[in-house]
Write a protein that binds this DNA or RNA. Structure first.
Lengths: 233, 233
DNA sequence: CGAATTCCTTGATCATTGTCAAAGAGTCTT
DNA sequence: AAGACTCTTTGACAATGATCAAGGAATTCG
């Protein structure tokens, strides 16, 4: 049950914009707004979804296992929704979710979400927009994986991250390098070597802090493409 | 403009099930049902979508280019929708679409689709289901790419294709091998070599015809996982 | 039918990426 | 501060995958 304060905060989230007040009330009826420390698992692949999750603050890693291998599919920050597809279809999670930066998460009961879908076109349209965005992000990631080498993926991650954080040419990796490696689809050892290679292009690495000494050279190597790298396209 | 006959046929498509008759009428108002020969391009990446496409029969390849490289993202058959995400968000296509088996395609005006989303919750919910399914397929593909080698992907493609076509242990590749290679994320040369390797597991190849001589051995190698390979999960 | 074309396969080689092992750097704990 | 721990880096090597070149097989087209 949400406090008055939390209720107001939650109801202002983008996911509810344009929806009927009854829909919002119904969704928030059995909702929780919880704080989770780093390391907590919010969902496990193979299990059925109980809640639609909204990241209000912090960071969540979506990852997956197969045999003895594990990879990171995505790292999510506010104000993003996750587990939406599994909730809509009432199918098992394809990915596990783990908190990697202390997070506040709004959890909406899955059954209420499916009910709201059929009753409120505005909410259904919002969910459709969420899913379309997530789908496009996954498509871009697939193109990134299939059409680029590891070095190119890293170079593009750096240029994109730089532009997203004010183009100061100074970046801080906000999580472990091994998470970045998994996200970029390479072994941690290869991430190190790729960073070493980028030194020739003016990239200096000190722990999690990175300086882009020659942005033009880096961008020249990266050859970013809006249809892969622009999150808003 | 659709003939009476085509109108009836179109209105029975899954995408319209549960929708209000006015919604269906509005969507079919400016719709086309066209036949396209092999090789025709239905959409080009980077361009804005005019129509939501529904494959009524035939096959469509979704592919993408970057620098001088090209890859196949997906091959689509009936009764699937494509370009839904771009239409919902009114953003440029991330993929191009090309007919690879003579196809009948129903084309719904993009603007009508976006209008219907806001007016008919049942239609919006159906689109949400389509997008959720497509998103999950992309997630599975991403896991397939990141967690498996090329040989494993091929082995799993064979076992899956076999079970989808009646488990006769005889498969026919329904398009060029180079398309299969791109779909599986490998060079055509490597597909040939991987087939050669699979001979040791009882796989015999004669042109597009494949015989799975030892299904158990193949499945043992493939180690299929429902969270990657089961299209209905 | 025969020539041209495209597709597929094979061999040789190279580039990329993963694995194993060990050492260094940083963090946390006591 | 010392020790334990995890994370990261580096080196050596193996596996995987791509590229180039050439030859075969199948298909298309005149």
């Amino acid at each position: 049950m949400l406090s008055r304060e939390h209720y107001d905060e939650a109801s202002r989230l983008q996911i509810f914009s344009g929806c009927r007040p009854e829909t919002v009330a119904m969704l928030l009826e059995g909702a929780f707004l919880h704080k989770f420390p780093e390391g907590i698992d919010l969902a496990k692949e193979g299990e059925l979804p109980d809640f639609l999750h909204v990241v209000v603050s912090g960071g969540v890693e979506l990852y997956s296992r197969y045999r003895d291998r594990e990879t990171t599919i995505e790292v999510i920050g506010p104000p993003n929704v996750f587990i939406a597809a599994a909730v809509v279809l009432d199918r098992p999670h394809l990915k596990s979710a783990r908190v990697i930066q202390p997070a506040r998460i709004l959890m909406l009961p899955a059954a209420s979400v499916r009910k709201a879908l059929l009753e409120d076109a505005a909410f259904a349209a919002r969910i459709a927009v969420e899913l379309a965005t997530a789908y496009r992000a996954a498509t871009k990631d697939l193109k990134n994986q299939k059409l680029r080498t590891g070095l190119e993926r890293l170079a593009n991650w750096l240029t994109r991250r730089d532009s997203e954080t004010g183009s100061t040419h100074r970046i801080v990796i906000p999580f472990d390098k091994k998470v970045l490696a998994a996200q970029l689809g390479m072994a941690p050892e290869n991430l190190s070597r790729n960073f070493a290679t980028l030194a020739r292009f003016g990239v200096k690495v000190k722990g999690a802090r990175i300086e882009i000494g020659d942005p033009v050279a880096l961008e020249n190597l990266a050859k970013p493409d809006p249809l892969i790298d622009d999150p808003s396209s």
